[in-house]
Design a binder for these strands. Structure first.
Length: 150
DNA sequence: GCCAACGTTGGC
DNA sequence: GCCAACGTTGGC
């Protein structure tokens, strides 16, 4: 059982969308490090911090969990998709996605507040220049955040 | 394999 | 809109 933080721009997919749908396919990831986390490490039942980025109030807005393991991302083969990858072949898919489902909404826990807790200082999200959309969360960070999100 | 150029991310 | 940071691309 591991824990993760997943970033999304709410203008493209928000906690409201997840609340309405209940679950979603995490398609469109086109970064090898993030793909490798999904492919190699993310298991059904893993905990997910759902984070809004590139918006007026960046921060954690919900808790989710992995509801299905990685499988080939269909958008890579769809020529009309913005995530189309002409170099990827169906017999050797380059990109995968997991599924996540909502556990519950939380209050907005702003980036600014995350930065203020020494207990969270090692989170990749908070490191300068970090852009990775999926990052691991330690068990200690997860427990700490559960209390802050009660 | 190096590395400059370019594109993207994301907070501010 | 700015810009720092980083990943990817492609010529050599």
């Amino acid at each position: 059982m591991r824990y993760w933080l997943m970033k999304t721009e709410p203008t493209s997919y928000s906690i409201d969308d997840l609340a309405r749908e209940g679950a979603t396919s995490w398609t469109g990831v086109r970064n090898y490090q993030a793909r490798n986390f999904m492919r190699d490490d993310m298991k059904v039942g893993d905990g997910v911090l759902f984070y809004h980025s590139s918006c007026p109030e960046p921060g954690i807005v919900g808790l989710a969990e992995v509801s299905d393991a990685a499988h080939p991302d269909p958008t890579q083969f769809d020529a009309r998709s913005k995530y189309f990858d002409p170099a990827s072949r169906p017999d050797a898919p380059r990109w995968v996605n997991v599924e996540i489902k909502l556990v519950r909404r939380t209050r907005l826990l702003p980036l600014e507040e995350l930065r203020a807790y020494p207990e969270l200082a090692a989170m990749p999200l908070l490191q300068r220049g970090n852009r990775l959309s999926i990052t691991p969360v330690t068990a200690a960070e997860w427990r700490f955040l559960q209390k802050k999100l009660k």
